[in-house]
């Protein structure tokens, strides 16, 4: 990573923020903090998308994730009365097996990334415009797009059916 390039400085800052925020997400004893730190992580990913020339995806992540999904989570937190504030029952007692697996996964993924794509540059490639994404979705990816729309519809109906109070009880 060449720190002589301004973009890399941006990347470094955003990356560190994301890792720190995500660590808070998985360790925080306060559920509200965890949810808000997820916002920070996702915001960081949106910033990375901008850095990679994917403005549209960045916008979608901000709108859908930060705007809608997080709100959903907050509702979930409140409805299920997760203990807000410090409490010991949020986590399992022994974190070390989970940590070991997480570290091993990181080692494998990062190791293979460096090993196989160690010196690959992503600069110098023309950014994809939003209109190209639109054309691509409704041309080449129209079938998966329609499938995803059905998935969303099914999820919508499914969550209503699941969350609705059973009239008998």
């Amino acid at each position: 990573m060449d720190l002589g390039v301004a973009q890399n400085w941006f990347f470094l800052v955003i990356g560190l923020v994301m890792v720190a925020a995500s660590l808070v997400v998985v360790t925080s004893r306060n559920v509200m903090h965890a949810a808000l730190m997820l916002v920070a992580t996702l915001g960081g990913s949106a910033a990375l998308f901008v850095l990679l020339g994917a403005e549209f995806v960045a916008g979608v992540v901000v709108l859908v994730y930060i705007g809608a999904v997080i709100v959903l989570f907050l509702f979930g937190v409140m409805i299920t009365r997760v203990e807000i504030g410090r409490g010991s029952s949020l986590d399992h007692a022994n974190p070390w097996p989970a940590a070991a697996i997480a570290i091993a996964t990181f080692a494998v993924l990062a190791g293979s990334a460096v090993a196989f794509f160690g010196d690959a540059e992503v600069d110098g490639v023309a950014a994809v415009r939003t209109s190209d994404i639109g054309t691509s979705i409704f041309d080449r990816f129209v079938v998966p797009f329609e499938v995803v729309s059905f998935v969303l519809l099914a999820a919508l109906i499914g969550s209503i059916v699941l969350a609705r109070k059973d009239p008998e009880s």
Binding site: H92, P97, I101, A104, T105, V108, S112
Partner: peptide, 20 residues
């Protein structure tokens, strides 16, 4: 479920290392 998930990820790691 989480023990199953741990086994899943652990197995995946072993596989990747094996392929590698």
């Amino acid at each position: 479920v989480q023990q199953y998930a741990a086994a899943l990820f652990g197995g995946a790691i072993v596989l990747v290392i094996g392929f590698w």
